[in-house]
Design a protein around this nucleic acid. Structure first.
Lengths: 191, 191
DNA sequence: CCTCTTAATGCACAGATTGTGCGTTTGGAT
DNA sequence: ATCCAAACGCACAATCTGTGCATTAAGAGG
C-alpha cells in the first residue's frame, strides 16, 4: 500500500516527512513558487522539526523540493472509462491542468532539478501509459505503442509548458489525443 | 546573436561577464556538473571579481547558472546545406549531441531553473526553425509548420533527454526528421 | 586632451544559512 | 520488559548571503 521505502514507515519518521512536505507546500503556495523565499531553517521551523533533520534526510533544499514535487504530482490514477480515448483524457488532462498553472510549472522545475527523481517520475508516467494500453487491449482496442503516445502527446505538452509557458487551453490536449488515435481510420480531425 | 542589453557592452562590464561565465564553466566541468560544489564566493574568486558583483548582476547563483547555460547552448547557426532535411540535421544533431551528455543534461537543468531564460531560449530555437523553413521556401520545398517540427522532433528529443537520460544514439534524431518529412498527407496550415 | 557623469565594481560587515559531532529519544524486535 | 538501531534535537564553527558606502572606469561633450 504505502510506497515508503523507509525502514520504519509507521512511526515518527513518517510524521516528520509529512510535516516537512506540508511545510514546503504551504510556503511555496504563500510565495507563489518563489524558492528564494524558502530556506531550510524556515521549512524546519514551519514543520516543527530541527534543521539538521532536513539536512540528514534530504541533504539539500533543492533535493527536498524535488522530492516534494514528485510526491505532489503523482495523485492521478488510471481509470477505466470504457474507451482508450476516454482513459487517456481522464488521465492526462488533469495533469496538464495542474502543470500548466504558474505554480505547477514551478513545481515541475523543482522536480527537474533532481535527475534521479525526474527519471523515476518518467518511469511512473510510462507505467500509467502502459496500464492504459493494457486496458485497451482487454477491450480489444488497438493502441499505439507507448513510445508513440509519449512522443505525440506527453512530450510536446510538457515541453511547451516548460519552455513556452503555454496554458492548458493552448495546448489542446484532447486534439493531440484525437489526432494520434485517428491516424489509422479517421479522416480530417476537427478541432 | 548575443542579447546585449547592457548599456556598455565593450568595456569592463563585458570582461567581467566573460570571466564569470568562464569561471562557472570551468568549475562545473571540474566537478562534473555538481552544483553543490559551487558557490558565489568560489566563482567570484576564480573569476577574479568580488562576490558583490555577482550578486548585483545576476542576483542569485541559480540565475547565474541559467544565464551561463543559455549562453553556452546557443552556438549553432542555421546553414544552407541544399535541402530541408540536410538543414534540419545539420542544425539539430549537434544540439542533441551536446545536450544528451551527462554534463549537457546538467547544463540544460540549470537553464530550466530560470523560467524567463528558458522562454527566451525557446524563442531562439523557434527562430532557428523558422529560418530553416524560410530557406526551404526559397528553394521551393514544402516544409511542415513550425509547431509541427517542434512537436515531432524537438519536443520528444528534449523531453526524453531530460526525463529519461536517453543517449544521442537512442534518440534517433535522423529517423524522427525523416518520418516527419516523409508524411505527405498533412498540409501546412498552421504558422 | 581634459572634465564630467554615471553605471559598475570593490570593500567591509551584519545577519542568515550550512552542515556536522554528540547526546537523546523513538519505535520495532527479542 | 528490555534491548538496539535509526532518527532526531541541540549546539556551534565555518561559510555564505546580501547591502550600504567609497572608488573606479567607460563613454559623452566641450
Amino acid at each position: 500500500m504505502m510506497t515508503t521505502a523507509t525502514p520504519r514507515p509507521g512511526g515518527r519518521s513518517a510524521r516528520v516527512q509529512q510535516a516537512v512536505h506540508q511545510a514546503v507546500r504551504s510556503l511555496l503556495a504563500e510565495n507563489d513558487g518563489d524558492r528564494t523565499a524558502l530556506s531550510v531553517p524556515l521549512v524546519a521551523d514551519r514543520a516543527g522539526v530541527n534543521s539538521s533533520t532536513i539536512y540528514r534526510r534530504w541533504g539539500d533544499l533543492p533535493r527536498l523540493l524535488a522530492a516534494v514535487a514528485s510526491n505532489q504530482m503523482l495523485p492521478e490514477q488510471v481509470e477505466d472509462t470504457g474507451s482508450l480515448r476516454g482513459d487517456m483524457e481522464a488521465w492526462f488532462v488533469p495533469y496538464v491542468e495542474e502543470f500548466s498553472s504558474p505554480l505547477g510549472r514551478q513545481v515541475l522545475r523543482d522536480m527537474l532539478a533532481d535527475g534521479a527523481v525526474t527519471r523515476d517520475y518518467f518511469q511512473s508516467m510510462q507505467g500509467h501509459v502502459e496500464e492504459i494500453r493494457r486496458l485497451a487491449g482487454l477491450r480489444g482496442e488497438r493502441a499505439p505503442a507507448t513510445s508513440e503516445i509519449v512522443d505525440a502527446v506527453v512530450a510536446p505538452v510538457i515541453y511547451r509548458i516548460l519552455f513556452n509557458h503555454e496554458s492548458a487551453a493552448a495546448l489542446e490536449v484532447q486534439g493531440r489525443i484525437e489526432r494520434l488515435l485517428g491516424e489509422r481510420s479517421k479522416g480530417p480531425a476537427e478541432t
